[in-house]
């Protein structure tokens, strides 16, 4: 693919540029598609398994598509005490996914985090870049409606 060739060339068509190449591809696609990985390998003339090895080593790289919006449920100490786990349960039930997964319609990806640094608002859920505090099981469902 042309756009992949451009990215590969941007980093000098060298294996040492593999990490930034993968980052750029992920920025555009939201994840690392299989064809993308094969194309990068072909452009760099290195084995696909080598690229795959790097892509699976770093947690920052994703091999499966992400939802349009990411939900981070805080399960840090304060949020845990204030019922963060219950919020997670509710989200998992309502969206039909488990932590780390993406909904079938590609709308949300649900993940847990340990403290987002605003324990006064516990329990907290971060959706994309918005912080939502003092939530409960009902409120969190209401909040989701804002994100399509």
């Amino acid at each position: 693919m042309k756009w992949i060739r451009k990215i590969v060339e941007k980093y000098g068509k060298k294996e040492s540029g593999l990490i930034p190449i993968l980052q750029d591809v992920q920025k555009i696609k939201g994840y690392l598609p299989e064809e993308g990985i094969s194309d990068i390998a072909a452009e760099l003339k290195i084995p696909i398994a080598r690229v795959y090895s790097l892509a699976t080593f770093y947690k920052a790289f994703r091999l499966i598509p992400r939802g349009r919006h990411s939900i981070h449920v805080c399960l840090g100490t304060a949020c845990h005490v204030r019922g963060g786990a219950k919020i997670m349960d509710r989200l998992e039930q309502d969206l039909g996914v488990r932590s780390g997964e993406t909904t079938q319609d590609g709308r949300f990806t649900v993940e847990s985090v340990r403290c987002v640094g605003c324990c006064g608002l516990a329990p907290v859920v971060v959706i994309d870049d918005d912080f939502h505090g003092k939530l409960n099981q009902k409120k969190v469902i209401q909040v989701l409606k804002k994100y399509e």
């Binding site: 084995p47 398994a49 080598r50 795959y52 090895s53 699976t56 080593f57």
Partner: peptide, 24 residues
């Protein structure tokens, strides 16, 4: 990788989940 230059096998994932295998 070094002798046969096939590049079929590599290490995937990391830590206690590290496994030898093929791409994908």
């Amino acid at each position: 990788n070094e002798v046969r230059y096939n590049g079929t096998l590599n290490f995937h994932y990391r830590g206690d989940r590290t496994v030898v295998g093929t791409a994908f």
